[in-house]
Design a protein around this nucleic acid. Structure first.
Lengths: 95, 95
DNA sequence: CTTTTTGTTAAGCATTTAATTAAGTAACAA
DNA sequence: TTGTTACTTAATTAAATGCTTAACAAAAAG
């Protein structure tokens, strides 16, 4: 079973922003610290952290703090929940 | 080739609302008129039409008007574009 | 022709979102 | 112990969202 029932509202909302999708693309290659995730973007660090909070609230990303570094990782189960919903709607009721 | 390059911002934004996902579930069973789509919901007709506009802007739904009836249909290619993005991120860089 | 059905357009309002800057905290380094 | 790094928290602001009601338009039915 999944740890938490997926909230598709939060998941799709998190996915709707290009900055957040770019962060997910980075995290799909492996875990990263907050400042490493922030580096490619021109926005302030607090703005990046707010995007990260949206990703965590949706379950798409989890993080753990060790010392002063917060390390973030992608949660593939949450991606899978969204993918599954789309797949089901795409194939159901097909002509 | 696809008719229009998919805009993932608009697609995921459209998917982020439960009313719009419910409309897509209905349309996955076959085309429907605006008022038929509106029937299950308690909100006003203009509100439903605004949701429909979000779905059309994203390419997830198309519609055609004949007489006074606008018939809406699901666009499976747009669903597929979102599904594909998720699939790629879920499987890339896997440990 | 008048009425009903089906949708469209416009204006307004409450809430949420995405960003900012400023100030604070805690770990580690010199 | 004095900075520097890596975030964190809070307060503000501007724009976008999701609704509402009211008014309009055009097709179909009586």
């Amino acid at each position: 079973m999944l740890n938490k029932k997926p909230d598709l509202d939060l998941i799709f909302q998190a996915l709707a922003d290009p900055t957040r999708r770019a962060m997910l693309e980075r995290l799909s290659q492996g875990p990263a610290a907050v400042s490493e995730l922030a580096r490619p973007f021109e926005m302030s660090l607090p703005a990046v952290v707010q995007h990260l909070q949206a990703l965590e609230a949706s379950g798409l990303v989890s993080s753990e703090k060790v010392g002063r570094v917060r390390t973030c990782r992608i949660e593939r189960d949450a991606l899978g929940a969204a993918e599954h919903w789309l797949h089901a709607r795409r194939l159901s009721g097909e002509a």
